[in-house]
Amino acid sequence: MLKLESAAAFVAVAESGSISEAARRMSLSKSVISERLSELERSLGTKLLDRTTRKLSITETGRSFYERAKRIMREVADASAEIGERRGDLTGQLRIAAPTSFGILHLGAALFDFLAKHPRIELTLDLDDRFVSLVADGYDAVLRHGPVVEDGPVIVRKLASSRRFLVASPDYLERFGWPRSIEDLKRHKGIIYSIRGAADWRFKIKRRLVTVRPETGLRVNNGILMRDAALAGLGLALLPAYFIQTELADKRLAVVDVGAEPEGATIYLACPEDRRGSAKLRALTAWLRDVFGDPPYWEA
């Protein structure tokens, strides 16, 4: 007899590509995942995975079973959630990803209050600055900051607008001078965000975007470290307002005006099309919009 927990383990392994990662996602041990996979293959009488010490791959039968098993697990989760919703209660698992720094500074506190209001939701939050895939990495939703760029059919829900500011420490500006134009930036060191597509600085001039590539003083993939590097006087940094509201208020960082406005961004929640009707995601979207505000509280 097919057990749902065994099918869920197989789906997690198929999506993550490894037993270790599937165990992490499901908060189980690797031995439990392996046991459930073996039990599933015995009940079906066929091999779903080819496992060696170096590699794990899905068989042709396994690929066919995965598509059906994925739909089954989704239907079970949706049916459970629907029953809860009819009782006026949001319930069930919710797995989302978000950028590390934004998650630490702003998202965490908002989610804590959301979970206190909806205690039957089982939330898994993965903080990661890399560009995770909704489908391949198995998320119900992904929170992003930047231009809306998604792979595949997804639903995008805007949470807030986000301004960026070019900033530097007073010490750096005293030593190297204030840049007053876009051209001046080429003679300054930049603290650069190293995630794909974010290394260039873009400014709006008469409805067009101008790209600037300053000399690199530091390249790093984390916004909090970029802010701290700017505080240490290592160069100019182009940062979202949510990183620097305190540092601007106490004048440890200064806004540098080069006669052009930095390109803004959007904070949004993206989810697969088949999660369009999720009451949990609708409730979470409305909650975050209300908490962040428009304009968001960090730009007050």
Rank of each mutant, 00 (worst) to 15 (best):
L2T: 15
A7S: 15
A7F: 12
A8H: 14
F10G: 05
G17I: 03
S20I: 11
E21R: 08
S27M: 09
S31N: 10
S31M: 06
E35C: 11
R42G: 08
L44G: 14
S57Q: 10
S57D: 06
T59M: 04
S64A: 11
F65T: 12
Y66C: 11
R68D: 14
A69I: 06
M73P: 09
R74P: 02
R74M: 12
S80I: 15
E82C: 14
E85W: 02
A97R: 07
P99K: 03
L107P: 09
G108E: 11
F112R: 14
K117Y: 01
E122N: 08
D126R: 12
D128S: 11
R130G: 02
R130D: 01
F131I: 09
V132D: 01
V132G: 04
V132R: 12
V142I: 14
S162L: 10
R164P: 00
W178P: 12
D184W: 08
Y193L: 00
S194F: 02
A199G: 11
R202H: 09
R207F: 05
R207N: 14
L209N: 13
T211K: 04
V212D: 00
R213W: 07
T216Y: 05
T216N: 08
N222C: 01
I224M: 15
L231K: 07
A232H: 13
G235P: 08
L236D: 04
P240V: 05
T246H: 15
V258K: 01
G264T: 03
I267G: 07
Y268E: 05
A270V: 10
R275Y: 01
G277H: 06
S278Y: 09
A279E: 11
L281P: 08
A283M: 03
T285Y: 04
W287S: 01
R289A: 10
R289V: 00
V291T: 14
P295W: 01
Y297D: 12
A300Y: 04
